[in-house]
Amino acid sequence: MFSRLTYTLRETFAGFKRNVTLTAAAIITSAVSLLIFGLTLLIQHGFDNLLQRWEGGVEMIVFVSAGTQQDGLDFIASTLQDQVNTGTVASFEYCDVACSLADADRVLAGDPTTRQLLDETNIPTLFKIVPAESTEVEFLRGLKESYQQLPSVNSVTLAEEQLDLIGKLQGFVSTYTTGLWIALMFASGLLIWNTIRTAMFARRREIEVMKLVGATDWFIRVPFMLEGLIQGLLGGVAAVGSMLFINWRWTQGVQDFPDSSGMTALVVIDGYQWTVAIIILAFGALVGMIGSGIAASRFLDV
């Protein structure tokens, strides 16, 4: 067992030394494709943060002025309830201080300075409203104006414009980055496959001797698969490092964007980046290992 392990490790590292240029090319390609894969996941998560407020078909948000007393809230709630009864509004939900603070954590993730200014005493609470006719823009705008007239209402945000912009951005970015990482991942798999194939071609005599003295296919294949796995893993490590750096720079830079741009929510600081890092490492290792395994199998027919 120990001698097999020693043999496998020795052969794996011998393979690395034999094909330095090809190995480096395979690692760099995997790193680039895995980086784009990771960034795609982070961007999608950032958009999810942006869209968090509008989940459940919410089309409109009524922000209540800070310091509004219970009777002010009751008045808004009863007005909305009347509209539910008359069929103007499908449903509504009150987001209290705790709920608003949790929302602020997500929406202002990229703007900690502004977030620090908000606490239980000054954060505006809000009503999330699902109108009955959510596709009628004129109807929605009329409703928005009517809410703005209510006492204790600070402002009203209509989802239409924001959702439209975010949706378009998300669709565009997701489609192209996903397409790009699939293409690059395929290229990276092919390159690792080619590296191993070249290595095996150079060692075909050795493999022939191994087969003739009774080595099993798995005994021959494992060092090559391990080589591919390490290539993918190294590509993954480089991709994770780059992704964390880009995410850090973006999080820093987004603080300079105006609040109204909505970009302050487009950051990932909730630990999701570490989940993506693990996915990248696992994915890189898997692609490298499978690519190598397929390449190795082609030379074992002795």
């Binding site: 067992m1 120990f2 001698s3 097999r4 043999y7 005599r205 050795e206 022939e208 001797v209 191994m210 003739l212 003295v213 009774g214 080595a215 005994f219």
Partner: peptide, 29 residues
């Protein structure tokens, strides 16, 4: 198996070439 062209591995010593046949079938060191 013995071949006309020997089929020895040029990067391995005499000892390693012979040991190779035992190594690949998992004989202990």
């Amino acid at each position: 198996n013995i071949f006309q062209d020997y089929k020895l591995l040029s990067n391995k010593t005499v000892f390693e070439n012979v040991a190779f046949a035992q190594e690949v079938i998992g004989k202990p060191k």
